[in-house]
Design a protein around this nucleic acid. Sequence first.
DNA 1: ATTTCAATGTATCATTATGACACAATAAAA
DNA 2: TTTTATTGTGTCATAATGATACATTGAAAT
Lengths: 262, 262
Amino acid sequence: MKDEFFKSMNAVISKCLPGNSIDCVVFGYENYQLKTLLLKWKQEDLWSLPGGFIYLDEDLDAAAVRVLKERTGVTSMFLDQFYTFGEKERSKMNSKIISARFSNYTQQDLFGKNNFVEWIDKRFITTGYLALANIEKTLVNPDVFSEKYAWVNVHNLPELLLDHNKIIERALHQLRIQLNYMPIGISLLPEKFTMQDVQKLYEAILQKPLERSNFQRKMLKLDIFKREEKQLTGAANKAPYLYSFNKEKYNELLTRGIGFNY
Amino acid sequence: MKDEFFKSMNAVISKCLPGNSIDCVVFGYENYQLKTLLLKWKQEDLWSLPGGFIYLDEDLDAAAVRVLKERTGVTSMFLDQFYTFGEKERSKMNSKIISARFSNYTQQDLFGKNNFVEWIDKRFITTGYLALANIEKTLVNPDVFSEKYAWVNVHNLPELLLDHNKIIERALHQLRIQLNYMPIGISLLPEKFTMQDVQKLYEAILQKPLERSNFQRKMLKLDIFKREEKQLTGAANKAPYLYSFNKEKYNELLTRGIGFNY
DNA sequence: ATTTCAATGTATCATTATGACACAATAAAA
DNA sequence: TTTTATTGTGTCATAATGATACATTGAAAT
């Protein structure tokens, strides 16, 4: 039992770079709320970001793609490195968590040669990746430390492992800045959507109300949408048009960018 | 001699995180050209970015501040982490460079226990920092590997160590994006300057001509300048006004940002 | 069947921003 | 005194923006 666990973990760490990790802030959009994917640790009341280590022969960016694939099943999502966190104290809590987590093991179990506990009880530098996912299209698969997952409103988060709250804070800041020079949302919205859907998404990200008709005018002027037929299903009001993204024009705008020109 | 060098290097590496480094892209502005600070290696025809390692008890960001201080003497410059480079092959050339560099040493010298060469001949992940410096105010101090330095036009760079060309390319990209949502330049311009100076700087960064009178109107509308007296010295033309930055308003705009609003 | 309700698509309009260009002013050189 | 280059400012047509208005229209309520 003990042997099994440590044998498998030692196998993992022997293939990974020591002292470096990645953490993914996966944003999703559901019920008009901006959410992020969290994993709950086995046994403990502790939530954390999905993350992982970098294989010795693997590019850093590739590690992020792999971890995201392992956790969500999705490969083709918006994924962007946004910051590397290297405060000297940031991973200090690892040892506490580890000792609580493995309190039924002996010191020898925990600190034998080439041991996982010893390996992880070091200072780590982690690189944060920002991902945008369509919640309905993901099939979340918790990692070996986790028993379950949840999509949690980013504006109502519990206290997380280590500096993960800070990492999410920074990812959100980055997302808001990105909104100012590139259209985001193709990854967060369903295939077809209304302009109100887009507006609600932007409001959820920016956390401020936007004027409806001007927002619509401005968005449509970007010329990245294709207007579909009228939406028939619906509520007690005039049926809105459905839109989809014109992916060529969307991607072109992504690379060209929008914004302040001199 | 040999002993001296390795003793000092072993002392250095024993205090540093293995496998992680930082590289600084220091932009400066001189003769209407955007330049970056490069160091030339001793003996070899090889240039590289100023960089360094992270002390075991030092924050990542603090390491960047320290390295910048050690190389340029300046502490209070604009400094921003912009990307972490972790391609698996990126530091492969270290071994070649090392062996060329130390070709007069024996294998035993080079690969003894706890040896600097062994330490550096590993895969490294490096975090890039973008700095803006006033060239006249810096006092460059090459590191132990370097014999001299130079401020080189970023649009006319030689082939550099490892992936340093790529790192500069990305820093420049980041700088251009930053221009779109924050005013940059207070660090690159002298205390007092003309609007033409600002325009030339922007043209050097963006590599495209800007329309004079509209540029002036747009910049002044940002309301971050203080108009000083007329410039008396000068060429065969009407004397332009001198400006300085209103630092309160400048910093406020830096945090608020400019750009596309929804 | 008619009315009510809520949200949509579009329009208006005053204000501001933008790009292109014009031109008198002026410091120094010819 | 004239020439030259650059500056500060103005004009003007066009586009973008923010605030608001209103007729339209599905579905629910009466």
